[in-house]
Simulated scan of single mutants.
Amino acid sequence: MTSSLQLDQHGRLRHLLTMDGLPRQLLTEILDRAAHLAEATSGADKKLPNLRGRTIVNLFFEASTRTRSTFEVAAKRLSADVINLQVSSSSTSKGETLLDTLKTMEAMQADLFVIRHDASGAAHFFAEHAAPGVAILNAGDGRHAHPTQGLLDLYTIRAHKGPPENLSVAIVGDVLHSRVARSDIHGLRILGCKDIRVVAPPTLIPAGIEQMGARVFHQLEPGLDGVDVVILLRLQTERMLGAFLPSLGEFHRDFGLTRERLAKLKPDAVVMHPGPINRGVEIAGELAYSERSLILEQVANGISVRMAVMDMILGDRGASK
């Protein structure tokens, strides 16, 4: 169902809702396109004409800084017109339904909606009800998926460590509430990574994660033993109802990345984080932008990856008309 919704009859991107079920060749094509666009916009003139005349709407029902900003920059670098809809001050606050909002913006001839919502499945809802020729790009829905974050993580890993087939990758922290963790696991598995680890206390491990292809560790040191990449996750306390852990201090003691723990990793192991960072919780403050950290590079890579996805959905579609 999801694959048929995301891909057209020729196997090209129609919407991007989740990494799950996408073919390996398509993921590789997106990463290759991102590398090409990064090179093409590396000079003083960063603007390309690919999406001139297209309209992209950033429709964010959840607060965001990095994701919304990088989507906006990516669309503008492709010469698209961009509308940033402030949902808290829009008609949805007056009782307008999600479907009415979508149809209203479609009537303004929007070509693509970038949607972030706190409900899992919201992006699928929009895709199922979008008019023909209108694309939906999931910028994060509940705990479900954040496919462009997964793609930019894969892009960053590939740029520094090569293809993930023979890598060991550990995802540490609040896996239970993390759509990033799910997208990373799907993407790594599709690209052939055989050693995907999730490291967290039992209360922050979702049921069935092993069926997705990950090994579970409840202690940090064995979970990080021999890994090439460490992806740290923020504790999403805003999604926690009840006692998931004793305290932030105890979490840092047991699962936080400190300088001492960093020193025990492989000398060429790298550290990543989707942001925002909780310094002194999942990572010691002085390590956030250290020589082993790729966190700021992830932000920059997000622009190229999001350009690639929008270009493949709208630019390639326009070229094929």
Rank of each mutant, 00 (worst) to 15 (best):
7 L>F: 08
9 Q>Y: 11
9 Q>W: 09
22 L>M: 09
30 I>G: 15
31 L>F: 09
32 D>I: 01
33 R>E: 15
34 A>M: 04
36 H>L: 09
36 H>Y: 08
39 E>F: 04
39 E>R: 14
39 E>Q: 12
41 T>W: 08
42 S>A: 14
46 K>A: 10
48 L>C: 02
48 L>K: 02
50 N>I: 06
51 L>T: 04
52 R>Q: 14
54 R>S: 12
55 T>I: 11
58 N>Y: 15
59 L>I: 09
59 L>P: 02
61 F>N: 02
62 E>K: 04
63 A>H: 06
64 S>V: 13
65 T>N: 00
65 T>S: 01
66 R>A: 06
66 R>G: 01
67 T>C: 03
70 T>C: 07
75 A>V: 10
76 K>V: 05
77 R>S: 04
81 D>Q: 11
83 I>T: 07
83 I>V: 13
85 L>Q: 05
85 L>R: 02
85 L>K: 05
87 V>W: 03
89 S>G: 04
91 S>G: 12
91 S>C: 08
93 S>C: 06
101 T>M: 01
106 E>N: 04
106 E>I: 15
106 E>A: 01
108 M>Q: 11
108 M>T: 01
112 L>G: 05
115 I>E: 00
119 A>G: 09
122 A>H: 12
126 F>W: 05
128 E>A: 08
128 E>P: 02
128 E>D: 13
129 H>I: 14
131 A>E: 06
133 G>R: 05
135 A>Y: 11
138 N>A: 05
139 A>E: 09
139 A>F: 12
140 G>Q: 06
140 G>D: 07
146 H>M: 05
148 T>E: 14
150 G>L: 07
153 D>E: 13
155 Y>T: 00
155 Y>V: 00
157 I>V: 12
157 I>F: 15
160 H>I: 01
166 N>R: 11
170 A>M: 06
171 I>G: 02
172 V>K: 03
172 V>R: 07
175 V>K: 00
175 V>N: 06
176 L>C: 09
176 L>W: 10
176 L>D: 15
177 H>A: 08
177 H>K: 03
178 S>L: 07
183 S>C: 08
190 I>T: 15
192 G>N: 11
193 C>Y: 13
193 C>G: 10
199 V>K: 14
199 V>L: 09
201 P>H: 13
201 P>Y: 15
202 P>Q: 11
206 P>L: 02
206 P>W: 09
206 P>A: 11
213 G>T: 14
220 L>R: 03
220 L>D: 05
221 E>R: 12
227 V>K: 15
229 V>R: 12
230 V>H: 05
231 I>A: 00
232 L>C: 04
235 L>E: 12
236 Q>C: 10
239 R>G: 13
241 L>E: 15
241 L>Q: 14
242 G>C: 07
244 F>E: 11
248 L>K: 10
252 H>E: 03
252 H>G: 03
253 R>C: 07
255 F>Q: 04
256 G>A: 08
261 R>K: 09
262 L>Y: 02
264 K>V: 00
265 L>E: 03
269 A>P: 11
273 H>A: 08
274 P>A: 04
277 I>C: 00
282 E>M: 01
284 A>S: 14
288 A>I: 15
291 E>G: 13
293 S>F: 05
294 L>F: 04
295 I>G: 13
295 I>N: 14
298 Q>C: 05
300 A>N: 11
300 A>R: 13
301 N>K: 10
302 G>I: 00
304 S>A: 15
308 A>Y: 12
309 V>Q: 11
316 D>H: 14
318 G>S: 11
320 S>K: 06
